Computed example of a mutant assay.
Amino acid sequence: MPTLYYAVGACSLAPHIVLEWIGAPYEAVKVQYGSPELLAVNPAGAVPTLREDDGWLLTQAGAILDYLSHKHPEANLSGGDSLRQKAENHRWSAFLTSDMHAAFWPVFMPYRYTTDESEEARAKVVAAGHVLVHKQFATLDKHLEGREWILDGKSVIDA
């Protein structure tokens, strides 16, 4: 049975949702970033981390989602098998795990984006982050106009 190491409020939510949609048995282990328990399976101390029964580890939400969709084709969550459907899957996976995800970093970790430790400087970084977040949501909103799912049907990308 696979084990998903996750943290609350993290991008590990998407693989957790997909595992529920698939319906196959799995174990979910709640961890803290950098905890000894997480570092024992992922030296980077990051979530999500998926461990298979044989000890094989997979990290990065996009890779885990792609893996799960191919491991469980019966769940029909890959987004399609044509070349263009696969490309759209990769496009939106990259958008969500890079553009969208990174847009939130200045909001939650403004200290990474300025050497000025004043509250004013950090507030400006957070405000700039909000602009980025709104831009990315506008891209997603435009794509979703008249659609129920990001791809042609329910897929790992929607998680």
Score class of each variant (00 low, 15 high):
M1D: 08
M1C: 01
P2L: 10
T3C: 00
L4D: 13
Y6M: 13
Y6T: 14
A7M: 13
A10Y: 03
C11K: 11
C11Y: 13
S12D: 06
P15E: 12
P15Q: 11
I17F: 08
I17D: 10
E20Y: 06
E20M: 13
I22P: 05
G23H: 03
A24R: 05
P25C: 06
Y26E: 00
E27S: 13
E27T: 15
K30P: 02
V31M: 04
Q32P: 03
Y33K: 10
G34I: 00
S35A: 10
S35E: 12
L38V: 08
N42M: 14
P43Q: 13
A44W: 00
G45F: 12
P48Y: 05
P48A: 07
T49H: 06
R51T: 13
R51I: 02
E52N: 10
E52F: 11
D53T: 00
L57Y: 06
L58P: 09
L65N: 11
D66A: 14
D66H: 15
Y67A: 01
L68W: 10
S69P: 04
K71F: 01
K71Y: 02
K71Q: 15
H72F: 15
H72S: 09
N76V: 11
L77I: 15
L77C: 13
S78A: 15
G79M: 04
G79Y: 14
D81H: 12
D81A: 15
L83G: 12
L83K: 03
Q85H: 12
Q85G: 06
A87E: 05
A87V: 05
N89Q: 15
W92Y: 12
W92A: 04
S93G: 08
A94P: 01
F95D: 11
F95G: 05
L96I: 12
T97D: 02
S98Y: 10
M100Q: 14
A102L: 08
A102W: 07
A102H: 05
A103H: 04
P106H: 06
F108A: 05
Y113T: 12
Y113D: 03
T114L: 05
D116E: 07
E117G: 07
S118E: 00
R122W: 08
K124W: 09
V125P: 09
A127R: 07
A127W: 08
A128Y: 03
H130D: 07
H130G: 04
H134P: 00
F137Y: 15
K142C: 03
H143K: 04
H143M: 01
E145F: 02
G146S: 03
G146M: 07
E148W: 04
W149D: 00
I150K: 07
D152K: 07
G153M: 02
K154L: 11
K154I: 01
S155F: 00
S155K: 00
I157W: 08
A159C: 01
A159N: 09
